[in-house]
Design a protein around this nucleic acid. Sequence first.
DNA 1: CATTTGAACAAATAAGTAAAAAGTTCAAAT
DNA 2: ATTTGAACTTTTTACTTATTTGTTCAAATG
Lengths: 188, 188
Amino acid sequence: MSTSKHSILSKSRELFEQHGYGKTTLTDIAKSIGKVKSALYYYFSGKEEIFAQIVRDEAEQFWNSLAAEIETADTVEDKLHLYVETRVELMQKIAKRYHFLKKEFFELMPIVEENRKETDRLEKDTITVLLMDYPKYEGTDESTVRFKAEMLVNTIKGLEVQMYVTDQVLIDQKSLPIFSDVLLNGIL
Amino acid sequence: MSTSKHSILSKSRELFEQHGYGKTTLTDIAKSIGKVKSALYYYFSGKEEIFAQIVRDEAEQFWNSLAAEIETADTVEDKLHLYVETRVELMQKIAKRYHFLKKEFFELMPIVEENRKETDRLEKDTITVLLMDYPKYEGTDESTVRFKAEMLVNTIKGLEVQMYVTDQVLIDQKSLPIFSDVLLNGIL
DNA sequence: CATTTGAACAAATAAGTAAAAAGTTCAAAT
DNA sequence: ATTTGAACTTTTTACTTATTTGTTCAAATG
C-alpha cells in the first residue's frame, strides 16, 4: 500500500478518535498529511470509504490478534477460554478507543457492521471448527454446531454493542475467567 | 389509583408508541383524555415523570409475568430454563413495542435504567436465591453466587440493548430452548 | 376539598434565509 | 502516477422571527 494511502488512514483514525467522524472534515484530513482535500479522492471514493477502510483494517487486526492468541493453547477448552477472555479484552479496548461512535452510533454502526462481515464470518467459522473437534460434538452435524458457535459469538457481540452504547465497563480483568467459565461451562 | 391518573398513563403510552416520546406533546396527551395540559400537573410533576411512571409500571408487570412463570416449574433447572426463555420472549415483545426508543435511545435510556433499578434488583435477587438452592453451589458463599447470577442477567440484558439499538430479532421461538441450554449448561 | 382551567412565562422548536463550509467532480498541472 | 485548484452540489451554520411546548399558579369549578 502506498505511503500516502497509509498516512491518510492513520491520520484519519487519529482525527476521528479525537473529534468524532462528523466533526472531522476532509480538509482537516488532507491538511494533516500536507495535501488538499481533492487529493484524497485519488485514493478513496470519499469520506465514508476512508472510514470503511479503517473499520476493515481494525477488524482484520482485531481478528489476527485474537486468532494468534487462540493458537497458543493446546486443547479445545483452553482455546475457547482464551477466545472468550481475549475477545472481551480486545472489545473493551476498541470500545474505549471508538468512544466517539456513541454519539454517531446509528449513523455509523451500519457501516461498521457492513465492513466487519468478513472477519465476522472468519470468527464464526473458527469457533465452529473448534467445536467440531470437541468430543461432545463428535458426529453432530455441522449446522447444529455452527448454530451454537454463532450463539456464543453473538452473545459476546451483544456485550460489545452494550459497551458502545452505555458507558459502563462491563467486565473487569479479574472477573474475566469467571465470565468465560460461565459462558462456556454454563452456570449450572 | 385515580381513573384520571390511570388514563393519562394509558393514553400517553399509546401516543409514545405511535409517535415517539419527543413528538408527543402534553397537549396531545391532555386532549386524548379530554382535559387541558395544565391538568396533567395535578397528577405528575411533568412529562418526564409520566414517562418514568410508564417505565416503572411496565417493568413491574414484566417482572410479575416472569416471576409467575418461574413459579410454575418445580426444579431449579426448570425454573432457570423457564426464566431464560420467558425473559427473552418478553424482552423481544417489549423491544418491538418500544421501537420508538431507538431514535431517542441516548436521551431516554438513562431514565429507563433509573426507573428499572427496583425490578432489576428483584430479578438478580431471585436468580441468586435460585442458585443458592442448587446442589452445585451448596456451601458457596452468597457473593460468589450473586456474581454469577448478575452475570447471567447482564448477559441477557446485553441482548436487550442490542434489540433496542439494532433491528434484528435475535432469537426466534424455536431456537429459544437451545439458547437457554447454551447459556445455562454451557457450550462445552 | 379534590380537580380542572386559563392566563402567563420561559425554554425549546420550527421556519425562513443568507452566508459559509463541506463533500464531490474533473480538467489541467506537476 | 499524483496532486492541484476551480467549479458545483449538498450540508451545515448563523441569525432572525414566529410558534409551540413545558411549566407554574391563582382563580374557578363542582
